[in-house]
Write a protein that binds this DNA or RNA. Structure first.
Lengths: 162, 162
DNA sequence: TAACATTGTTAGCCAAATCTAACAGTTAGC
DNA sequence: GCTAACTGTTAGATTTGGCTAACAATGTTA
């Protein structure tokens, strides 16, 4: 239970939480200047946001003493991280450069509905857990390069029990 | 030529331009109250934005006299519309509800890089221009429903020249 | 341990995009 | 062609999330 006054967070708020999560995972702690440099903002903006996120119980923040995520914050950070990875893998899968895949994942992860995130995750999983690169993906890659749908697409196939 | 002082627009500015474009295409004109109701804002916000977009030459706006798109505005509206359709078709393709596909397309169309938009358009085109629903998509649909990768995926296939 | 360098915070400002309340222009019906 | 109803606009407040400049706490090192 517990009155969950969870108003939805802004993209900006979510980015801070995600960044804090990443830093803590990678380094064990999250510093104001580093958060600032990752998010391309100045340190006072970070302090400001940390105060807001502390009020909303996503982080525990003591001035000059650093910041950690609460349970609520960790849970959100995890969701965002997974969503980010799904998006990025999908974009790379369809031929987007690593750089743009990363950049777009950062933005879109804050916009999509949970249903969409779920379906996309399934799709990426479906493709990537295949025993080998699925033919359709190879064909698509060829299609990207040549503009031509490869011959095999137009060919009769015969299934043989293995 | 012409000094193209095209600073990038905000998601909000783009939404107004897109909405105006849609209304003009569907009805021949775009009214303040209708723009407001589609975008879920109040009329004064619309007036305000129309003035800004007029300064930036995306629309031609005369108080009390309505608004039309400039060439620059039409071009942007067209890009956004195409991007929107691509995104929506993709989301529906992977099993997202029509409602969420629409909603998410609206948000994401303002965030993605042109490269990503292009690759995604190619992907959707690749799938949808196929002579019939590609097997992998059918298999994915089954995977969504049953959680099981269909047998055919695990089977040896043999290509026969037609 | 005192002074300096680094890091973090506060105060106060700004811009974007929204809102409400009050006002102005346009249009339709009588 | 007046007037009421509708539509659109202005003015001014609010919210969010940035910024700079000045200050405070912490940490480092001679």
């Amino acid at each position: 239970m517990g009155t969950d006054t969870t108003k939805t967070l802004s993209a900006s708020e979510e980015s801070y939480i995600e960044t804090i999560g990443n830093l803590i995972r990678e380094r064990g702690y999250a510093r104001v200047t580093e958060i600032a440099s990752i998010l391309n903002v100045k340190p006072p903006s970070v302090t400001n946001m940390l105060q807001k996120l502390d009020e909303q119980k996503y982080v525990t923040y003591k001035r000059y003493r650093g910041v950690i995520l609460t349970k609520k914050g960790r849970s959100l950070a995890k969701t965002l991280e997974r969503r980010h990875n799904t998006l990025k893998r999908f974009f790379v899968m369809i031929g987007v450069s690593d750089e743009n895949a990363e950049k777009d994942a950062c933005k879109i992860e804050h916009e999509i509905d949970p249903e969409t995130a779920k379906k996309l995750a399934k799709f990426v999983e479906f493709v990537q857990s295949a025993p080998r690169t699925p033919p359709f993906l190879e064909h698509f890659t060829q299609y990207l390069e040549t503009g031509e749908r490869p011959k095999e697409c137009k060919v009769k196939i015969q299934i043989k029990e293995s």
